[in-house]
């Protein structure tokens, strides 16, 4: 029987899952994911986590609690950094995540919690993959072959994201080989909004109560950080006096600059979780930048455990109404987006 490796469907799942799924599958393991976030994972998470933690961390705990009895090994990498840039790492809670899980949840199976630190040394990802494979008793060419395949899958995934495919669909397309279901084309969107925030909030339809879908229904085109061409995203780094310390925050800030400078959108929506540490700063910086760039309308959408559909919808509707009114009011000030 194949060894079952568990991968919680939360946090970095939305950006790095295709790599690890392909890698483990090629090595002959079965990868088991938790269900998409639902009431159960939220309840389990709230129950297990220390009470001051933020919503995404609680959800992650919930996914682990759901998975722990179904798998032989849990894969909970310690995400430290994914590239060389000043002192960029992930948020402190990511750094201590495997420990938080171990400290809070009882009856866990074996855990693989290797440090993903790609800022140091030569070919860090290659070496990390071999280290993990070694722990699972896999050596030699098979690992190298799996590594290359995984890399290829990850590249395909990034390409899909850049082509405006939603993350979850792109993941299914890459790992399942399914054809891309043509996403609903919005005939003629009259409002363009940049929906910025961390991937685990933007792409988790349960946490954000189906935000992207609702926007599409309202005839609004949503732009996310993943749709910015990577090189142009990086080029925006120079706009801050010092890079932020957190990977996802830097991405969000750079996307903010990109959309503001390119005049591609009518407004910015920052999707944030209540109690998110880095976002307290990112949110303020975004607000100041929107103000500095021709007072671009800016909305903060804060999500928590009790987020109701009506609340989010009301806020978005009011924001969009305001945008439309504004456009009617001063036709000449409107940006001509391309």
């Amino acid at each position: 029987m194949k060894l079952k490796i568990g991968f919680p469907r939360a946090l970095f799942y939305y950006l790095y899952f295709p790599f690890w799924h392909t890698f483990f599958t090629e090595l002959g393991f079965e990868v088991v994911c938790s269900e998409p976030t639902n009431k159960l994972s939220l309840d389990l998470g709230v129950q297990e986590t220390v009470n001051d933690a933020c919503l995404p961390i609680k959800i992650y705990h919930g996914h682990v609690a759901e998975l722990k009895d179904k798998v032989d090994v849990l894969f909970l990498p310690r995400m430290v950094s994914v590239r060389k840039l000043d002192s960029e790492v992930f948020c402190p809670k990511f750094l201590g995540l495997p420990d938080m899980i171990r400290n809070s949840i009882e009856g866990l199976p074996r855990i693989i919690d290797d440090k993903v630190d790609l800022s140091k040394g030569f070919y860090p990802l290659w070496r990390l993959s071999f280290r993990i494979a070694h722990k699972l008793d896999r050596k030699g060419w098979a690992v190298a072959a799996a590594f290359f395949k995984a890399n290829k899958a990850q590249r395909r995934f990034s390409a899909y994201l850049a082509q405006e495919v939603p993350a979850q669909e792109a993941i299914y397309a890459v790992i399942g080989g399914e054809n891309l279901s043509k996403s609903v084309e919005i005939p003629k969107p009259d409002v363009h909004l940049a929906i910025l925030g961390y991937p685990y909030l933007i792409y988790d339809a349960f946490i954000n109560v189906g935000l992207l879908e609702k926007l599409a229904q309202m005839g609004i085109k949503a732009w996310t950080a993943e749709m910015v061409p990577p090189d142009r995203l990086e080029a925006q780094g120079k706009n801050l006096p010092k890079n932020l310390f957190w990977h996802f925050s830097n991405r969000t800030m750079r996307a903010t600059f990109y959309y503001l400078k390119e005049h591609k959108v009518d407004g910015l929506v920052h999707v944030t979780a209540f109690g998110c540490g880095p976002d307290a700063m990112v949110d303020k910086l975004m607000e100041l930048e929107s103000k500095a760039h021709k007072r671009t309308p800016f909305l903060t959408l804060s999500l928590d455990e009790h987020t109701g559909e009506a609340g989010v919808l009301t806020r978005i509707e009011a924001f969009v109404d305001m945008l439309r009114l504004r456009r009617k009011g001063n036709e000449d000030l409107v940006s001509y987006h391309g």
């Binding site: 986590t49 220390v50 001051d52 933690a53 948020c91 402190p92 809670k93 750094l95 201590g96 420990d99 938080m100 400290n103 809070s104 109690g275 540490g277 880095p278 307290a280």
Partner: peptide, 16 residues
């Protein structure tokens, strides 16, 4: 302080 990220991680360890 409320919302201090490193201390929240520490809190889970200290509880243990």
């Amino acid at each position: 302080p409320l919302g201090c990220m490193p201390e929240i991680v520490a809190q889970s360890a200290i509880n243990r």
